[in-house]
Amino acid sequence: MSSATELAAAAGSTDPRVGLRAVLALRRLLDRLERVQVDNARRQGWSWQEIADALEVSKQGVHKKHAGRPAVNGTREE
């Protein structure tokens, strides 16, 4: 069996434990990637509205999630 087939099999695993654990790990990774990228966008002067548009979420949502956090190596205007 090729490794691609093995991966495909795992991705579609019918064992909920395997599948759900992958979802959890992916969410953790996603949260952190989002933080890194939002911080980067803010450092480059993007507005919350621009970030929200890029993420296809509401400005309120993205602001609430990210504005309270101390910006990493960056300025904090708002």
Binding site: L7, A8, A10, A11, S13, V18, R21, A22, A25, L29
Partner: peptide, 8 residues
């Protein structure tokens, strides 16, 4: 390990 399962 979980991410490896889905090819990441």
């Amino acid at each position: 390990a979980a991410l490896r399962e889905i090819g990441i």
